[in-house]
Design a protein around this nucleic acid. Structure first.
Lengths: 154, 154
DNA sequence: ATACGACCTCAACTTCACTTGAGGTCAAGA
DNA sequence: TCTTGACCTCAAGTGAAGTTGAGGTCGTAT
């Protein structure tokens, strides 16, 4: 009985059901669980059972990802919620406002970069030390090793 | 004689010299060479020797990366130049203009996303099917599997 | 004579967000 | 009874952009 039966309307969901209703792959759901983003209990046959609110959690995760928030950060944010509850409208307001600030900053950085480029297209010097495009230090200070993943698509 | 001697002023450069003068690590230079972004010949002792214009090539690469252009794309662009010459001011103009268009688009996408978020912060429905934040299809159509790396910093 | 520093190659590791595959369990339907 | 389909675990692969390490060579200075 993989398809929803009206009698089961407020029962917990199997992975397959969660996948179908949330639009993410089963493997992704496993993965999210392994990262602590969602939780489940097990049926007698050792199958995952998810409370319905997992759908809202996944919705929040997906939107945050579109905003460019890394999974680890999302996980942390979700853990700050009282007893790990699924975000209410109030919670969402707080979280999304913080993420919006992030997004705003990223847009500002890119915009500055573009404006710098504007002037450098005609110049073309690219001198380390004189070209604003080659000298990130005035507008960018936070930095660390390794590549960072920030994908606005998806 | 690792340090520059005035008599060698227009000789080719060793990896170490290129690293010092361009500000990128030796390992990165090896890596760029393996990807075909730069080329070298070998000395009698099998050491790399780079023509001076490698510095300008690396400058172009680094700026393009700040603009969010993936290395593979940069490599392609550099290969379109007549007989693989190092970009002249004219070339730079053409390349950077193309990359600026890309950047503009990315900024536009993020801005739209932010505006969508604006309205959704108060709402919080996140419904798959109604919430504009959950439905990328109207503003975003290009897509493929796997994560994409787009880092505005560095 | 030997130590030192700069160089060489090649393989493996890193992060992120997953996906793919191999091999195994479980319950229901023909 | 057998097959099908959904599920399970755990390991390994993907891609981008490098970094790190082991083991070896070269050339010069002491």
């Amino acid at each position: 009985m993989a398809i929803l039966d009206p009698a089961d309307i407020d029962k917990d969901l199997s992975v397959g059901e969660v996948a179908e209703r949330s639009g993410v792959a089963v493997s992704t759901i496993h993965f999210y669980e392994s990262k602590g983003l969602i939780t489940s209990w097990r049926s007698s046959g050792n199958q995952r059972r998810f409370p319905r609110d997992v759908l809202r959690r996944i919705a929040v995760i997906k939107v945050a990802q579109r905003l460019g928030v890394p999974l680890a950060t999302i996980a942390e944010a979700l853990k700050t919620l009282p007893d790990g509850r699924t975000p209410t409208a109030e919670d969402w307001k707080r979280l999304s406002a913080a993420w919006k600030a992030d997004l705003d900053e990223r847009i500002a950085v890119l915009t500055k970069l573009r404006d710098g480029l504007e002037g450098c297209i005609g110049c073309g010097c690219l001198s380390l030390g004189e070209c604003p495009l080659r000298n990130p230090w005035d507008e960018l200070s936070e930095d660390g090793p390794g590549p960072r993943l920030l994908d606005p698509r998806r």
